[in-house]
């Protein structure tokens, strides 16, 4: 007779069930919140408040991140481009990468870490201190007063932050090219104009809006399923950030594949 623990043939099945339960939960919450957004049954002042709290306070970190990213692309590209006689392509390559990929994805990731974590922690602590139950006991839907304004704020804010990120990234790239290889401004900006088209910018913003939706939805869902005390809130907050970042990368690939 073996004393080993019995094998778990259905472990894979349990993982599939957890995945389906998670995606089902996200879908239901999205449906519920969308219903309130479409029918305009939410407080618009709360959206403004959340947009300020989530967006404006994330702006400095996003500006810093995209500034350094623009500089490092320009730093790597400039020396090579000058060596091979392609210095007229520096501006275009920085702007192309920034507008289509780096601007939206970096903004999404930083937003997930800063704003997504804040939303999850806030809602999680409301759950463990019975504030969410208090809302429900009054006949008020948490999807209406907590989720809908935050979701809308995230969807509106991330594209706006991405515009800042794009501008800062491309400008930082120019400054680096100027310092590193003394590239004249006229050449850099002409290269930007010749390489990127308007749809690169708008499609980048569309991606940013999707990332905002992902961060807002995952953050709210995780926050509302917090259990226990501070430890439970910590767990869901970490989980929300990790899940958001993975989903942002996955959807970035999917959207780049579909729309560009």
């Amino acid at each position: 007779m073996s004393s080993e623990a019995p094998a778990q043939p259905f472990q894979g099945l349990a993982s599939v069930r957890r995945f389906l339960s998670y995606t089902g939960g996200l879908t239901l919450l999205l449906g519920d919140a969308t219903r309130y957004i479409v029918s305009m049954r939410f407080r618009f002042t709360e959206v403004i408040h959340q947009a300020y709290f989530l967006g404006v306070e994330s702006a400095p970190i996003i500006i810093l991140t995209s500034g350094f990213t623009g500089m490092v692309i320009s730093l790597e590209a400039a020396a090579q481009a000058v060596a091979y006689g392609f210095s007229t392509l520096i501006g275009g390559s920085v702007a192309f990468g920034e507008l289509r990929e780096l601007g939206p994805i970096l903004t999404g990731i930083v937003f997930a870490g800063r704003a997504g974590a804040a939303v999850t922690a806030q809602l999680g602590s409301m759950v463990v201190t019975e504030q969410v139950e208090a809302l429900e006991s009054m006949g008020v839907s948490p999807a209406k007063v907590l989720v809908a304004p935050r979701l809308l704020a995230c969807v509106l804010t991330v594209p706006m932050l991405t515009i800042f990120a794009d501008i800062v990234g491309v400008t930082a790239g120019f400054l680096m090219a100027l310092i590193q290889v003394h590239l004249p401004g006229a050449i850099y900006w002409r290269s930007v104009q010749q390489t990127v088209i308007m749809s690169d910018f708008t499609k980048g913003l569309f991606k940013a809006a999707v990332f905002g939706l992902i961060v807002g939805l995952v953050a709210c869902y995780e926050g509302l399923r917090a259990r226990g005390g501070a430890e439970g809130v910590g767990k869901v907050t970490t989980h929300a950030v990790v899940t958001s970042i993975i989903l942002i990368f996955a959807f970035n690939f999917l959207l780049s594949f579909l729309i560009f």
Partner: peptide, 12 residues
């Protein structure tokens, strides 16, 4: 219905 919670559950 009104519900008075054990730890008040006031919106902080």
């Amino acid at each position: 219905m009104g519900f008075a919670f054990q730890y008040s559950a006031l919106f902080d």
